[in-house]
Amino acid sequence: MNSSVSNQTAIANWLIQQLSEKLSLDKSSISVSEPLTRYGLDSIDAVTMVGDIEDILDVELPSTLFWDYPTIEKSSQFLADNYDVSAIAFDSDAATPEVVEEKVPEPVAAGKSKGWGGLFGRS
């Protein structure tokens, strides 16, 4: 992991990655300050995505997290301020700074070809 990447950025990158994969969007089209609903993520999807983060952080989060903090900027800030998010920060996809800077192509298209990549990885 690149230590210069702050926790908030790591989470923001991870969220961008999630949205691009699960809404079939180009990452460059996702802005951290726009409401998530703008990208077609409806209110129930947003609740479901909380479950994905809980999986990685192994912590229970408010299910309305993305309702209360409806942009990537706000939600990543909230998570970084209130939780130990090192698990996301260590997540290889999320922590790759290039993801935000978009200098390299999407690292692994695991979601497209091999299911959800590592779904059963955690024991």
């Binding site: 993520l41 409806d42 779904l119």
Partner: peptide, 10 residues
């Protein structure tokens, strides 16, 4: 389910 691709939305 584990092998399928998941997408949000309608």
């Amino acid at each position: 389910i584990a092998q399928s691709k998941f997408e949000f939305g309608h």
